[in-house]
Design a protein around this nucleic acid. Structure first.
Length: 692
RNA sequence: GCCCGAGUGGCGCAAUGGUAGCGCACCCGACUUGUAAUCGGGUGGUUAGUGGGUUCGAAUCCCCUCUCGGGCUCCA
């Protein structure tokens, strides 16, 4: 048996995998784990897990709990973190080579790899400086046109920079051009950036006419140095760092102007925020702009219309209408979650849409959330349309006595929710006023929290794996200033969540102060086509609601205890998830979700009957199929099916009719040639079952 | 909610104070087609609002309202 452990040189860091002619590429699903001593074959591996292969770093994401299709004998736990990349690369190579006849090519050494990683860091640092410097150059240009402008802050961001400025009048696109032209002059002049450390008094004198800068100076801790950076005749309060000279800003582009509150508070004046970006070369800038353009093509609002999935109308602002094709996807997503819920012991419930305002007073929504709710008066009584399911579930829980044996009790609900989001914050499908969550509430004992949260993480991980979201950001939000419950309670709850994340080996960022007032939470975010982050899943601990609704259970000793509530959502809102998924897939849904899975394309009218027959066979196999019966050329029908991202185009003409076959073309543009219908159905079904 | 911008046939766009036009879609007709757009003809908009104003004249300028977009804020 050709197992790699013995064959790979010691410094092999990254391997390329081949199956036949297919090279395993970044994003492909792989399996990996750690070798036991003396391992000879895949089953000698502890901790099999699935992840994705990434050409740059070998295997990563060792955090997915496993439900392998080929169950190895010793599948015990998730792969422990901290093992070397090499060990993992070895293993995955070995596993796949044996299981699936992959052959292995060594791409590069560990040393090379780390140099590459280092280059990335250097580049990031360089761009940071370039953009920070570009912000200064921009401010310089603006001040030259508007001497009364008051500068505030101008930091670099992930993809560019901005400067918030108090200006006498709104900037126009023409202004942007003028400013950009002036910036180029400054860059060409190649002024050096000079850093100067100044005293607090000097700083205050220097920026005496700028209240924003004065406030900034006031907030610099007394021990810290106050510095300015100058280029040419321009000086700004700044801690740096910058590039050496303005000429180091090789490529710059101003993008747009927007309003922004000083210090982000609505109570403060609205400033003008001018966004731009800068790169170390024109090519890199062009590439970035190209990327932005490509992203616009993936915009779910555009694709949602083009693919007949969803529409909007001013009669229901920010409330999507799902067209038949969109409804197919929507329902399939819910079906999928329903299946998961069943598998993990969640019970679905159906609860009212409209509740007396009394309920919302009891839950606290009336005091804290009233502006975001829709209310209706009926027969002199006030009712509220539900923005969340939790109070309804609490009412259900409280309707009978519970033993500790009942817990955890897991209620799932796909009810439609309505939130009166402030105008100006709504956005396509990702922020709407009417939506459905894959919502659930777990009522459990304190000692059950860890397991419940761990299970939620497992479910979420499976979901993100199925949908191939590789870049999921996980945040652990801790106690905010305004909160309920004792500090001990918070200590304990935060510790449990943290422990669970560590146990599940989930990379996460801790965000102090961002928790809900009722408890800490774990949130999962992914990015849309324009790299904006959107929250999908969440697991939130809640000590407040059980208190408010006086929820109880009877423990082993007959004592009355209060359960803890866990709010969970995995896709988040189905609407938002669909929006993100459309952008993630560019509208090319995996076959199991595709609204139309196959289009039968008859070449001429005389093939119509045969096309109908094929349609019937596929429909009998529960596939979503259509016949393009229009009197049009085949080329046009293929083009349109292609634009609709239909996974399979089945061309039927004289040849196919004779053979009782169909000619299969995929949306990837591959012509697979003639296939027997039975075989085709079996292949597509397998693809659907595997959710590929 | 706040700042800025936009709204023209179903969709994408043009018309910058002087007769609302183009492409796609749609309808009709011809063509009967082999892996990303066949050809010809036709219907359709008093320009977001049965809003207000300026002007001899408004898609175009001003005001109000609505909706959408980019941000900010918000997302208990």
């Amino acid at each position: 048996m050709d197992f790699l452990g013995d064959h790979l040189p010691n410094d092999a860091g990254v391997v390329a995998l081949h199956q036949g002619d297919h090279v395993v590429r970044t994003g492909d699903q792989i399996a990996f784990g750690d070798l036991r001593d003396g391992a000879q074959e895949p089953r000698d591996v502890a901790g099999l897990a699935y992840g994705r292969f990434d050409q740059n770093v070998g295997a990563h994401r060792d955090t997915f709990p496993s439900t392998p299709t080929t169950e190895p004998a010793h599948c015990t736990a998730a792969c422990p973190p901290g093992r070397s990349r090499r060990a993992r690369a070895f293993f995955l190579a070995g596993f796949w080579s044996v299981q699936y006849n992959f052959s292995i090519t060594i791409l590069e050494s560990e040393a090379l790899l780390s140099a590459k990683v280092q280059d990335k860091q250097v580049l990031r640092e360089l761009r940071h400086r370039i953009r920070h410097s570009a912000a200064h150059v921009m401010a310089d240009a603006i001040v030259s046109f508007f001497p009364e402008a008051k500068l505030t802050i101008g930091p670099p961001t992930e993809d560019g920079f901005y400067y918030d400025i108090d200006l006498p009048r709104p900037l126009t696109p023409d202004d942007l051009e003028r400013i950009e032209a002036r910036m180029r002059e400054t860059i060409k002049a190649d002024h050096p950036f000079e850093c100067r450390e100044i005293s607090r008094d000097d700083a205050q004198r220097m920026f005496a006419d700028n209240p924003y800068k004065l406030q900034t100076i006031d907030e610099i801790p007394s021990g810290e140095a106050i510095t300015t950076y100058s280029h040419g005749a321009f000086t700004d309060l700044c801690e740096g760092p910058h590039v050496e000279r303005t000429g180091d800003i090789e490529a710059v582009k101003l993008l747009n102007v927007a309003g922004a509150y000083w210090r982000g508070s609505e109570a403060n004046p609205m400033l003008q925020r001018l966004y731009g970006t800068a790169f170390e070369s024109q090519e890199a800038l062009d590439e970035h702009l190209q990327m932005l353009e490509e992203a616009l093509k993936r915009d779910h609002r555009k694709l949602g219309r083009q693919l007949d999935l969803v529409m909007f109308d001013p009669v229901a602002p920010a409330s999507p209408f799902f067209l038949p094709k969109g409804a197919v996807v929507y329902n399939l997503l819910i079906d999928y979650i329903r299946g998961l819920n069943t598998r993990y012991g969640y019970q679905e419930v159906i609860t009212p849409q409209i509740y007396s305002a009394d309920l919302w007073r009891k839950s606290g929504h009336y005091d804290n959330y009233k502006d975001s709710m829709f209310f209706i008066d009926i027969e002199d009584r006030e009712f509220g349309l539900k923005p969340m399911n939790c109070p309804g579930h609490a009412v259900m829980y409280a309707s009978r006595l519970h033993s500790y044996r009942d817990l955890p009790l897991r209620y799932a609900d796909f009810a439609r929710l309505h939130r009166n989001e402030r105008s100006g914050v709504t956005h396509g499908l990702t922020r709407v006023r009417s939506f459905t969550q894959d919502d659930a509430h777990v009522f459990c004992r304190l000692d059950q929290i860890l397991e419940e949260v761990a299970t939620i993480i497992e479910m979420v991980s499976e979901i993100y794996r199925v949908f191939e979201f590789d870049e999921v950001m996980t945040y652990l939000s801790l106690r905010p200033d305004k909160r309920v419950g004792s500090d001990e309670m918070w200590d304990r709850a935060e510790a449990i969540l943290k422990e669970t994340l560590v146990a599940k080996a989930i990379d996460h960022e801790v965000v102090p102060g961002e928790g809900a007032f009722y408890g800490p939470k774990i949130d999962f975010f992914v990015r849309d086509a324009l790299r904006r982050e959107w929250q999908l899943g969440t697991a939130q601990l809640d000590f407040s609601l059980p208190e408010r609704f006086e929820l109880e259970y009877v423990d082993e000793e007959g004592k009355t205890e209060r359960p803890v509530l866990i709010h969970r959502a995995m896709l988040g809102s189905i609407e938002r998830f669909m929006g993100i998924l459309i952008e993630h897939t560019g509208g090319a849904f995996p076959v199991w979700l595709a609204p139309v899975q196959a289009v039968v394309i008859p070449i001429a009218d005389r093939h119509l009957d045969y096309a109908r027959k094929i349609e019937g066979l596929l429909r009998d196999a529960a596939l979503r199929v259509e016949v393009d019966a229009r009197n049009q050329r085949m080329n046009l029908k293929i083009r349109e099916a292609q634009l609709q991202k239909v996974p399979y185009m089945l061309v039927v003409g004289d040849r196919e009719e004779e053979q009782g076959a169909v000619a299969v073309r995929t949306r990837a543009g591959e012509n697979l040639g003639a296939r027997a219908v039975d075989q085709l159905i079996a292949d597509i079904r397998a693809e659907i079952d595997a959710k590929r």
